[in-house]
């Protein structure tokens, strides 16, 4: 890897005071950004500059900064989580950019993800979908059975684990031209559908989660496959196909 250097960049960032105000793209110039810094550190640097200038800093979501919490979002230069695959925005580094670049930073765009402020969107629609069926019943009466006491075929366990890797960041919705949440819901349905523990609520789960997804105002999937390319956790379209099968099974029951 080449040694870190400093670059000067131009930023075009969506600024919106609150949910009800009308936002716009604003331009900022930021000098001496180390290519070794992460994208979010670059935004921290920008905010420091804005605070020094007595301006309102840019609001953006972030938490763990190690690619596991799903908080960071950002549509960077036309791509969810920026110009790389298999990463969240916090894992994106400034070495992906060149001196003099203009970088567009926009919030996730979806009717179901309204902007709260600047680059922060409300992703509680995902929570409501999860609450509609993304759970299993567990005996909590004091004699809880160890999960590993039920044998699970290795292949199923692996697939369920891959589906469960979804961190609910919403990149699938953001990148889908239809604003569809089917990769998210497909992953959540799959992670339970593949395991014996999930069979009990299987029928209601898929029906309820899909109904909630539709009610939230997400678009319809047209199988463009953009979601699986942009998903930081590599969730595959197979999960949507599995949800389609589960839905058909549940619908005719």
């Amino acid at each position: 890897m080449s040694a870190a250097k400093n670059i000067n960049i131009n930023l075009k960032i969506w600024r919106q005071k609150n949910a009800s105000s009308k936002g716009s793209m604003e331009t900022y110039k930021l000098d001496n950004v180390s290519t070794a810094s992460s994208f979010l550190e670059m935004l921290d640097q920008l905010n420091e500059q804005l605070i020094n200038e007595k301006k309102e800093p840019v609001a953006f979501d972030h938490d763990c900064r190690e690619g596991i919490c799903g908080m960071c979002s950002l549509y960077i230069n036309g791509r969810a989580h920026g110009p790389d695959t298999g990463i969240t925005t916090c894992q994106l580094h400034m070495r992906m950019f060149n001196d003099g670049d203009t970088i567009y930073i926009e919030p996730w765009r979806s009717k179901a993800f309204p902007v709260i402020k600047d680059l922060v969107v409300d992703r509680t629609a995902f929570d409501r979908i999860q609450q509609a069926g993304g759970f299993v019943s567990v005996n909590t009466s004091g004699n809880t059975i160890d999960a590993n006491s039920i044998p699970v075929p290795k292949d199923d366990a692996d697939k369920a684990f891959e589906a469960a890797a979804c961190i609910g960041c919403g990149a699938c919705v953001a990148t889908c031209k239809n604003g569809s949440a089917m990769l998210f819901v497909g992953a959540k349905v799959s992670q339970y559908a593949l395991l014996p523990q999930g069979k009990v609520e299987a029928t209601n789960r898929v029906l309820n989660m899909v109904r909630q997804m539709d009610e939230e105002g997400f678009g319809n999937c047209t199988n463009t496959g953009a979601c699986e390319i942009e998903c930081p956790k590599g969730i595959s379209l197979e999960n949507i196909a599995r949800m389609n099968r589960e839905f058909l099974k549940a619908s005719v029951k």
């Binding site: 230069n77 567009y104 926009e106 678009g219 390319i229």
Partner: peptide, 25 residues
Amino acid sequence: LTIQNKKARPIGYAKTDGSSSSFAS
């Protein structure tokens, strides 16, 4: 479907990059 899908994103992106899906799709 097309009408519903347009409604699912009332405000579009200022910059888009089509590299993650095919022209046909």
